[in-house]
Amino acid sequence: MDRGTMAIGGTIFAAWMMIIAGAWQVLVGIAALAKGDFFVAGDEYAYEFNLTGWGWVHLIIGAIAVLVGFSLFTGSDWARALGIAVAIGSMLANFMWLPFQPWWSIMVIAIDVFIIWSLAAVGDRLRFPNQEPDH
């Protein structure tokens, strides 16, 4: 299997992972907003933010990730670029979320790394037969 085939399959998988991880982040955001005492960080955490703020961050990033994940099935360049940007934002947010949910954050960061690779590696190979390239 060549790299292009892997990237196309990876991009389709990345689209589904963005949808699923985005839905999970929406749920985490709702949990942080509704039941903030569920999440506890240590006293020595360098990035001290209000949990309600984090709830909104996860809710917004998750909702955008779901929408971008569905748009990746169009094969458009803008969807891939936006997917990479959303995955980078998700990585940064989850890095700062590490003290609250370390295993969750590490898992989402790993998924985001794969999403970025597959969206960057696919190029114009993710096109339907009669689809014109974006200009």
Rank of each mutant, 00 (worst) to 15 (best):
I64K: 07
A65K: 07
A65C: 09
V66L: 07
V66R: 07
V66I: 09
L67M: 04
L67E: 06
L67G: 08
L67Y: 03
V68M: 09
V68T: 09
V68P: 12
V68D: 06
G69C: 08
G69K: 04
F70D: 04
F70M: 04
S71V: 01
S71F: 04
S71Y: 02
S71D: 07
S71T: 05
S71A: 05
L72M: 13
F73S: 06
F73R: 09
F73G: 06
F73I: 06
F73H: 03
F73N: 00
G75W: 10
G75I: 12
G75Y: 14
G75T: 13
S76M: 09
D77Y: 11
D77Q: 15
D77E: 14
D77H: 08
W78V: 14
W78N: 13
W78A: 13
W78S: 14
W78P: 05
A79Y: 08
A79G: 11
R80E: 08
R80H: 13
A81L: 13
A81G: 15
A81R: 15
L82D: 10
L82W: 14
G83E: 11
G83H: 14
G83V: 06
G83S: 14
G83N: 09
G83K: 14
I84Y: 13
A85M: 12
A85P: 12
A85E: 12
A85D: 10
V86P: 09
V86K: 14
A87V: 05
I88F: 13
I88Y: 12
G89I: 03
G89E: 03
G89F: 03
G89M: 06
S90W: 05
S90D: 04
M91F: 12
M91T: 12
M91V: 12
M91H: 09
M91C: 09
L92Q: 03
L92R: 07
A93R: 00
A93D: 11
A93G: 01
N94E: 08
N94D: 03
N94K: 10
N94T: 10
F95I: 01
F95Y: 03
F95G: 00
F95H: 02
M96V: 13
M96G: 15
W97I: 04
W97M: 11
L98F: 10
L98H: 06
P99I: 00
P99M: 00
P99Y: 02
F100I: 00
Q101P: 03
Q101M: 07
Q101S: 11
P102F: 00
P102L: 00
W103Y: 13
W103F: 14
W103G: 08
W104H: 15
W104P: 06
W104R: 00
S105T: 03
S105A: 03
S105Q: 00
I106D: 02
I106H: 00
I106G: 00
I106P: 01
M107C: 12
M107Q: 09
M107K: 05
V108R: 01
V108M: 13
V108E: 05
V108D: 10
V108S: 01
I109F: 15
I109Y: 13
I109M: 02
I109S: 01
A110V: 04
A110Y: 01
I111P: 02
